[in-house]
């Protein structure tokens, strides 16, 4: 946990403010899941899960859950009025067909070019792709939430991904503990800095050039 800037929930809250009325949203595991806790006013959002659950609501407490119902993270969720269930090929038809307005995912690295890496760690033979490559290639928008640096303090916002990419040139918005940034080709543009974070501080912790937005 960072001492300065946004908490994980605040990162999710800030990104969720970008959701627009009527959007179909897919949230990845980890910090992105926290977007569903955010109060975004009266906006009507439909959450889609890779396993074909469309229109799910909050996670249910133990004892109240239905064991036949999980979201893509395996959490026992509820269904909201208007929910629907489809099989996996139709669920990914929704994704590949461009019907998801935004996918929010975690990542190890994001490049200034909009490339990102989130399925394989350095030195591994395999990894965990899940639905990430389908979502990254086909959702209308790809937003990323991640800590600005690794635990060792190395930047995760970089000129080029060192790890194998999930998709190229697709990321348009990145929330980190330091603020909100947009990949712009050879640099990241600052859209907003978290309270107490200076431009100079953010620039020092960013691997690619940082520009005023």
């Amino acid at each position: 946990m960072s001492e300065l800037g946004w908490t994980r929930q605040q990162m999710a809250d800030r990104l969720a403010q970008e959701f627009e009325e009527g959007w179909i949203v897919n949230l990845g595991v980890g910090i992105p899941t926290l977007c569903s806790n955010t109060d975004i006013g009266g906006k009507q959002i439909t959450y889609h899960a890779e396993n074909g659950v469309i229109g799910y609501g909050p996670v249910l407490p133990a004892g109240e859950e239905d064991l036949h119902l999980v979201n893509a993270g395996g959490q026992n969720v509820s269904l909201l009025p208007g929910a629907a269930i489809v099989h996996h090929a139709d669920s990914f038809g929704i994704i590949r067909g461009g019907h998801i307005d935004v996918t929010v995912m975690g990542a190890y690295e994001v490049a200034a070019s909009g490339d990102f890496a989130n399925w394989k760690v350095g030195g591994a033979k395999g990894g965990g792709i899940g639905g990430a490559m389908d979502l990254a290639a086909c959702a209308k928008r790809v937003y990323i939430i991640l800590e600005h640096t690794t635990r060792k303090g190395e930047p995760r916002l970089v000129p080029h991904c060192a790890l194998p990419v999930t998709a190229r040139g697709v990321v348009t918005l990145v929330a980190t503990n330091l603020g909100l940034f947009a990949p712009s080709g050879d640099a990241f543009e600052v859209h907003e800095l978290a309270p107490g974070i200076s431009f100079e501080h953010a620039a020092k912790l960013t691997g690619a050039p940082l520009k005023h937005g």
Binding site: E50, G126, D134
Partner: peptide, 22 residues
């Protein structure tokens, strides 16, 4: 088992896996 080479694996994106079966 996979990383040590004891078992072979083919890693497929989830939507591609579903569509290949379909």
């Amino acid at each position: 088992y996979y990383e040590s080479g004891e078992v072979e694996a083919e890693l497929v994106p989830q939507g591609t896996l579903a569509e290949r079966l379909r």
